[in-house]
Computed example of a mutant assay.
Amino acid sequence: MWFMYALSWIAFIVIAVCLTIAVAAGMYYVAELIEEYTSVAKRVIRIMLITVTVLNVLLIIFETQFTWTLCGIGLLSNIIYFCILADFPIIGFLSPTFLFAMVLLVIHHYFAFSFFNHHYYPFPEILAYFTIFVWTVPFCFVLSLSANDYVLPQYAEPQRSRYDGDAMTNNGGDLVSNYFKKRAKKIGLLAFMRSVQDTILPTRNKKY
């Protein structure tokens, strides 16, 4: 009996590792698609936001146990996500909109956990709420972070006023320098996965 019990744990570990690798590979593929087709990704995220907003309103109508506070936080979060989507794929990590969205995400988790602690719902329904109303849209933005690294170069407004006086000594206000400075500081899920891939996976040298 102990032998089969040990084998069951080994099988569970193997399945967990395979699922983790499969999810990571899927996220890597989706992040590359978003990086290549940013306009399509923006439309998809907008459709998802509209769908989640409509479902949130229907949740208020058909599920009377859900509090107005919890649903209101969900609707307010969607409004902030629409504001972030307006500048997609450019996402300013230190912008007030993005920081406020992160604060709302934490608050949304807190009120959701508090609600389900006081009201009984089956686990699949709890998972459905968190997946659809809490995690889906922020997860799409996380997958889209690497697309910000490949936006066409833009002239930074603060640097415009700083360097307009002397164009010959302009060391940071032109398009090219801003672009390569941005490219040198890649962040996001896809950039992280690529660094892990380059570190862990073996590379093959091409033979000519």
Score class of each variant (00 low, 15 high):
Met1Lys: 10
Phe3Gln: 13
Met4Phe: 10
Tyr5Leu: 15
Tyr5Pro: 12
Ala6Pro: 08
Leu7Gln: 13
Ile15Pro: 02
Ile15Phe: 13
Val17Pro: 07
Val17Asn: 14
Leu19Ile: 13
Ile21Trp: 08
Ala22Ile: 04
Ala22Arg: 09
Ala25Pro: 03
Val30Asp: 03
Glu32Tyr: 08
Leu33Thr: 12
Glu35Asp: 11
Glu36Gly: 03
Glu36Pro: 01
Thr38Met: 05
Thr38Tyr: 04
Ser39Glu: 12
Ser39Gln: 10
Lys42Glu: 05
Arg43Leu: 05
Val44Tyr: 15
Ile47Arg: 13
Met48Ala: 15
Met48Val: 11
Leu49Ser: 06
Ile50Tyr: 12
Thr51Ala: 12
Thr53Ser: 13
Thr53Glu: 07
Val54Gln: 13
Val54Glu: 07
Asn56Met: 14
Val57Met: 06
Leu59Val: 03
Leu59Glu: 02
Ile60Tyr: 15
Ile61Pro: 01
Glu63Tyr: 08
Thr67Asp: 00
Trp68Cys: 02
Leu70Thr: 13
Leu70Tyr: 07
Gly72Cys: 02
Ile73Trp: 07
Ile73Asn: 10
Leu75Arg: 02
Leu76Ile: 01
Ile79His: 09
Tyr81Leu: 07
Ala86Ser: 14
Asp87Phe: 11
Asp87Glu: 14
Phe88Leu: 11
Ile90Arg: 15
Ile90Cys: 08
Ile91Glu: 02
Ile91Leu: 05
Gly92Phe: 06
Gly92Ala: 02
Phe93Glu: 08
Pro96Gln: 00
Phe98Ile: 01
Phe98Thr: 03
Phe98Leu: 06
Leu99Lys: 10
Leu99Trp: 00
Ala101Ser: 14
Ala101Gly: 05
Val103Thr: 10
Leu105Thr: 14
Val106Ser: 09
Ile107Leu: 13
Ile107Lys: 09
His109Tyr: 12
Tyr110Arg: 15
Ser114Met: 12
Phe115Lys: 08
His118Ala: 13
His119Gly: 06
His119Cys: 02
Tyr120Met: 07
Tyr120Gly: 02
Tyr120Cys: 04
Tyr121Lys: 14
Tyr121Ala: 01
Phe123Val: 07
Glu125Gln: 11
Leu127Phe: 01
Phe130Ser: 15
Thr131Gly: 09
Phe133Ile: 06
Val134Asp: 02
Val134Tyr: 04
Val137Tyr: 03
Val137Ala: 05
Pro138Lys: 00
Phe139Asn: 06
Phe139Pro: 04
Cys140Ser: 12
Cys140Phe: 15
Val142Arg: 03
Tyr150Gln: 13
Pro153Gly: 10
Gln154Ser: 05
Gln154Tyr: 11
Tyr155Thr: 11
Tyr155Asp: 07
Ala156Trp: 02
Glu157Tyr: 11
Gln159Gly: 06
Ser161Asp: 08
Arg162Trp: 03
Tyr163Ile: 11
Asp164Phe: 02
Asp166Pro: 03
Met168Leu: 12
Asn170Cys: 10
Asn171Lys: 06
Gly172Arg: 08
Ser177Phe: 03
Ser177Lys: 15
Lys181Gly: 14
Lys182Ala: 06
Lys186Met: 03
Ala191Pro: 06
Phe192Asn: 08
Met193Asn: 03
Ser195Gln: 15
Gln197Ala: 14
Ile200Thr: 01
Leu201Gly: 02
Leu201Ala: 07
Pro202His: 06
Thr203Leu: 01
Arg204Phe: 03
Arg204Lys: 10
Tyr208Val: 10
Tyr208Gln: 13
